[in-house]
Design a protein around this nucleic acid. Sequence first.
DNA 1: GTCTATAACAGGATAGAC
DNA 2: GTCTATCCTGTTATAGAC
Lengths: 246, 246
Amino acid sequence: MGVRKARAAETEAALKDAARRLFAERGYLNTKIGDITAAAGRATGSFYDHFAGKEELLQALRADMEAQADIEIATAAHAAATDADHAAAHAADHAADHAVGQAVGRAANHAADHAAGHDLTDPAQLREHLAVAWHVFRDHLPVMVALMQSSMAAPPRSGDLWRRLEDETGILRDHLEDLRERGHPLPGDPRLVAAAMGAMLSTLGYAVLTAGEHRPGFSDEEVVDTLTALLLHGLAGPPPGAAAGA
Amino acid sequence: MGVRKARAAETEAALKDAARRLFAERGYLNTKIGDITAAAGRATGSFYDHFAGKEELLQALRADMEAQADIEIATAAHAAATDADHAAAHAADHAADHAVGQAVGRAANHAADHAAGHDLTDPAQLREHLAVAWHVFRDHLPVMVALMQSSMAAPPRSGDLWRRLEDETGILRDHLEDLRERGHPLPGDPRLVAAAMGAMLSTLGYAVLTAGEHRPGFSDEEVVDTLTALLLHGLAGPPPGAAAGA
DNA sequence: GTCTATAACAGGATAGAC
DNA sequence: GTCTATCCTGTTATAGAC
């Protein structure tokens, strides 16, 4: 790789970094191309040598995020697999795939293999799913914020948000369908239940993790524990003799 | 009221109507002042004789919505109160107040009185709460869409979304706190649980009710039933002998 | 109060030298 | 590839006649 190409890659990285920084601070919609180039220490015109526009930049950031999430997930799953506890390893492994799909909207390739054998009614597995999704959201907050703002800014009737919700919860839906096939009673159509859970997770994540000053003051663990308890047994609480996850 | 004033009121109403129509079609963010005046059959300049800007118009629409919701709620509660079934009437009455607060972000005045005596663990009452919130959302979709787009477009760190979530779920939170004080185990901090439920309801509502062509095909009842079942007993389902709402 | 016309200002995107 | 300079478009908001 020549110096020229290296310099170009450097500029592209600088633009991406600046974009992530600004997306977290001002949001995607309020960040102008000029803001990004200024923050990256480049000229406005240079932007268009790397990206066709703001939307293309966002897609590039999304690709980066998915790639990095894959790595994090894989190592997390591996770490869990070295554990003595089979159930935990199993949960972490599958939770990873699901959660990434859930938070990012991908991983259809692994879905089929891993759908079977899951049990979202197991407190540990459900908690692990939610925890991974929550932390992916937190670790990639700038891009998640940008993606959410972008899909909320689209014309309502385009159905963008519903599509996004379905994409993000593909794996979760598979797990639910699997659960239903094995005879477990579900609250409703797996598509709907999965979308509802995705809606809760993404909007609550956005609200809690971006609040900054006016921070609600909930720790990651408290949020994950609460969502686990709520989604596992609802408001009525666990049946008298059950060993719950809360 | 003179003719001049009446004409002015007419124009203001025309602007509001046009705005609601366009907000539902193109969304709040993509609707320009000029679009509204054109759709209302007025000149662009006339807009500023009635509103200081788009944000002020939105606040006016919000006020209208809240006023109308009050009426709808009151009559609904009254109708329910004439029923022979005490429990149903009770549920509908309080559900109304909550749901409006939930969907609209107000009704703090009634909160204190009505918080006591509720029981969100009762399937009928929970369902009623969710049903009213869902229908308020649907009936005022243009304004709800605009409000959501507006708060999502704000700078993330402003904490706008978290504040909005807390405001919308004030009454729900009160009910949960009441429940907790009466010894019922909750999934977590009432503020957090309420916010999570609000996040689910508003985002799912937006996604499902705006999807248009790419409509998921779920009826209002199916959604309300599903959310009731999910929030009442979670994914694990009702305890063996329970009479659930699903 | 309503209109026409226009000022004022983003913001996106390109041209051409280096 | 990167820069400087500029064009061009859309949108807000106001001025002033009616």
